[in-house]
Design a protein around this nucleic acid. Structure first.
Length: 766
DNA sequence: CAGTGAGCGAGCTTCCGCTTGACTT
């Protein structure tokens, strides 16, 4: 019988470690936390020093029973969960649940999975650090208090099944505030002035030099005056400034930066990146994917060095130790890197190959030399004025890491400065004038967040952890607080002035602008909940709340602060607000008065009502009942105008005639619809009931009729209540009012009456 | 849920952080 059993968190890790430790060590995994506060109750005894009530997680019950039997067989139990607050707590919970005696229990940690590191860890066991465990308990209990005391307030004051929490509510706040910033943004126009010059080198070869005026001009009058002044001017190179600079590679990937680069380079959503990374990890191709450490193991550094020397030469090697910039980083793992850096590529799905290659390049590049770049700035003076044209160019003198990897940015404004190679020019050289263009430009509103940008912002604020970034994004969408959307580009006409051959010409140009893909946008309920929480729980909603309490958790971990003391102090301030909000706060409806109805003079109001967003004409206290209509899905309480609101009351309205029957558009309980004859047809998400035209309506009617016509696959003379029908997800059996699935191996059109009855019988028994 | 145009009300909803399966649509 083996002497030792090691328990780690992940099965993939267990497999690797098992190889290093050999026969004397059995290695098992516990799959993360095994015990937690009970889900269906508050589970904190406030009156009894906040004692938590822990239960074994349902999905871990089987595992724990197995482990209980298993550990009895061994003399030494090594708890090797991660070396951070959560990992320490996992070790402690395991010890408690498995009833491990002190003398048999050894706590070990390692943050790289190499034979040396693990053997070293086995030589240096310690006891469980209870201070660290208490810091985790404080974190856990605080999160439970906030989540389970505030959420029920929302159920009463806004709508059932909503939620609030230390992390998710702040994430929503970021998105709400960005959207309001955008709504309030006033764009301003200016002109970007570009000069084009001809340069001829010694051999008579011609080059075009493009330079940008050093100031923006705001009005068309000023543009005209400037161009007028430039007529017959001379253009002289008044200064050439050459400045070398160095560019260093970005650090190896951590969870958040991997999510960002996969989003920027491939357009992967955060959850997709994590799923692919998980697959790569489980098949042993990369190291652990949920990490906030930029550290690479010595082994990885050595392999990288050899590889770079071989592939690029020794002048490309620059081994570096990166320091984490992440607030509250726990650094229990390595950075995300290929397990075997010698493997440049792997086999696998397209996405797996792409992501792997990205990780490989980033890892290797992080150990390569700085790029050496020379930036040249040419100043061109105008003989008839003080303004200057500036041309810039960059020459890469030594590419270094750029040979392998270039980090992308979130900036979609690529049109600003192009850094081309400049033609050969000298100081005091007179340039041949080609033309000047003045293009109308507009200031841009700040960009909306996409998933990866939100993760980056949260990380910057120290909110959330690598394992929770993807789930947070999913939660705030599930609650209906935010939606992921594409913003279609808009069209505008811009002015363009050209000075060429001493003539100033004006023309207009059509351009598309402001298109955004996969952006997070607050929905009505997100705005209302956000404002409600800021009004009543400003401390929790503060962007620095997490960072502040993290300092206290650190104090607990260092043994300088008692966790019960800390929680008590928090609760004494927090709980009265819960009580008073429950008692005093009125329904949060986001109500806005848009103005008066010109027909009746009554107020037009938009609000979030009992059944969703609604517009009403007339006061609810009026003797005459107000008129109501639901707000269409694509409209927002916060930005709805009086005109749009009044338009909604024009529904239902007739929009055309088809085959002698009226087509009527309206909105009802199930959203916008078309009524044609006696039948109803739902509008798709992209159809606006106010602007939909006859042609589109006919299209919808025909489409639906076609589906209807194909709906019945088979009917039975034996029983008219039994039918085989075509639904959105394939064929199914309808019997009375209930539906039944058809087994995959059966062909729906060949089913007999008896076979159908058999299917119904077996599915009913389930 | 497999298609429509109200209004009963019991019992339920919910947090953040660790980890992987076992499951559909």
């Amino acid at each position: 019988m083996a002497e030792n059993i090691v328990i780690v968190e992940s099965p993939a890790k267990a497999k690797t470690i098992s190889k290093f430790l050999g026969k004397d060590f059995e290695v098992k995994s516990c799959m993360g936390h095994v015990r937690d506060l009970a889900k269906n109750e508050f589970s904190i005894d406030v009156k009894n020093n906040f004692q938590p009530h822990y239960v074994v997680l349902d999905e871990k019950k089987k595992l724990i029973n197995e482990l209980k039997k298993e550990v009895k067989k061994y003399n030494k139990i090594w708890l090797a969960s991660d070396e951070d607050r959560e990992g320490e707590a996992i070790a402690w919970h395991l010890k408690e649940v498995l009833n491990l005696p002190d003398e048999k229990t050894h706590r070990i940690v390692f943050h790289e999975i190499t034979k040396d590191a693990i053997l070293e860890a086995i030589k240096n066991p310690r006891n469980i650090n209870l201070n660290l465990v208490n810091a985790q308990q404080a974190r856990r209990i605080l999160d439970r208090i906030v989540g389970y005391e505030v959420s029920p307030i929302l159920w009463k004051k806004v709508k059932p099944a909503l939620s609030a929490g230390r992390v998710q509510s702040v994430a929503v706040r970021l998105i709400v505030e960005r959207e309001r910033e955008i709504n309030n943004f006033k764009e301003s126009a200016y002109f970007k002035i570009i000069g084009y010059f001809k340069v001829i080198d010694k051999n008579g070869k011609e080059f075009e030099l493009k330079a940008i005026l050093d100031k923006k001009i705001e009005t068309e009058e000023e543009v005209k005056a400037f161009l007028e002044k430039c007529k017959n001017a001379e253009y002289i190179v008044s200064d050439i400034n050459v400045k070398p600079y160095k560019k260093s590679p970005p650090p190896p990937f951590i969870t958040s930066t991997l999510q960002q680069e996969a989003s920027r380079k491939f357009g992967f959503p955060v959850a997709f990146t994590m799923k692919i990374a998980q697959d790569l990890y489980e098949s042993g191709k990369i190291t652990y994917m949920r990490t906030d450490s930029v550290n690479l193991s010595q082994l990885a550094l050595n392999t990288s060095k050899k590889l770079i020397e071989k592939e690029f030469g020794s002048n490309y090697v620059h081994i570096r130790n990166y320091k984490s910039k992440v607030k509250g980083a726990q650094e229990a793992h390595e950075a995300i890197r290929p397990t075997y850096i010698d493997n440049k590529t792997i086999t696998g799905s397209d996405a797996e190959q792409k992501l792997y290659e990205l990780i490989w390049k980033r890892t290797v590049a992080s150990q390569m030399s700085d790029a050496e770049i020379e930036k040249t700035t040419v100043t061109i003076s105008i003989s008839t004025g003080d303004e200057k044209f500036i041309a810039t160019g960059e020459v890469i003198k030594f590419d270094g890491f750029l040979k392998l990897y270039i980090e992308s940015t979130d900036d979609d404004n690529t049109d600003e400065h192009s850094s081309d190679i400049l033609p050969p020019i000298e100081k005091n050289q007179r340039l041949n004038f080609i033309k000047i263009e003045a293009i109308e430009r507009f200031t841009n509103h700040p960009p909306r967040y996409n998933e990866a940008m939100l993760v980056r912002k949260l990380e910057e604020l120290g909110i959330g952890r690598p394992s929770t970034y993807a789930p947070i994004i999913s939660t705030i969408q599930q609650r209906g607080y935010v939606v992921k959307k594409d913003i279609p580009p808009k069209e505008r006409i811009i002015s363009l002035y050209t000075l060429e051959n001493n003539i100033i010409k004006k023309s207009n140009k059509k351009e598309f602008y402001g298109g955004e893909k996969g952006k997070l946008i607050p929905d009505n309920i997100g705005l209302i909940v956000n404002d409600f929480l800021i009004q009543h729980f400003s401390e929790i909603m503060d962007y620095n709340f997490t960072a502040n309490i993290e300092k206290e958790f650190d104090e607990i971990a260092a043994g300088n602060l008692d966790w019960i003391e800390m929680i008590k102090r928090f609760y004494e301030k927090f709980h009265p607000k819960v009580e008073s909000t429950l008692k005093n706060a009125s329904f949060a409806t986001g109500e806005r008065i848009l103005g008066d109805d010109p027909e009746t003079g009554k107020p037009v109001i938009v609000k979030y009502g009992k059944f969703g967003p609604v517009v009403q004409i007339g006061d609810s206290n009026d003797i005459k009942k107000p008129r109501y209509t639901a707000l269409p899905k694509n409209k927002n309480i916060e930005t709805l105008t009086l005109e749009e609101a009044l338009d909604l009351f024009k529904l239902p309205k007739k929009i055309g005639i088809y085959n002698d029957k009226d087509i009527i558009v309206g909105t009802g309980k199930f959203g916008p619809y078309i009524k044609y004859g006696d039948k109803y047809y739902s509008l798709s998400k992209n159809d606006d009931p106010l602007t939909i035209d006859e042609n589109r309506a006919i299209e919808i009617i025909n489409e639906k009729n076609k589906i209807e016509a194909n709906k019945i696959i088979k009917e039975f003379s034996e029983n008219k209540n039994l039918k085989i029908l075509n639904g959105p997800w394939g064929a199914y059996i309808k019997y009375g009012k209930k539906n039944y699935k058809i087994p995959k191996d059966k062909k729906p059109e060949l089913l007999t009456f008896e076979e159908c009855l058999e299917i119904i019988k077996t599915q009913k028994s389930k």
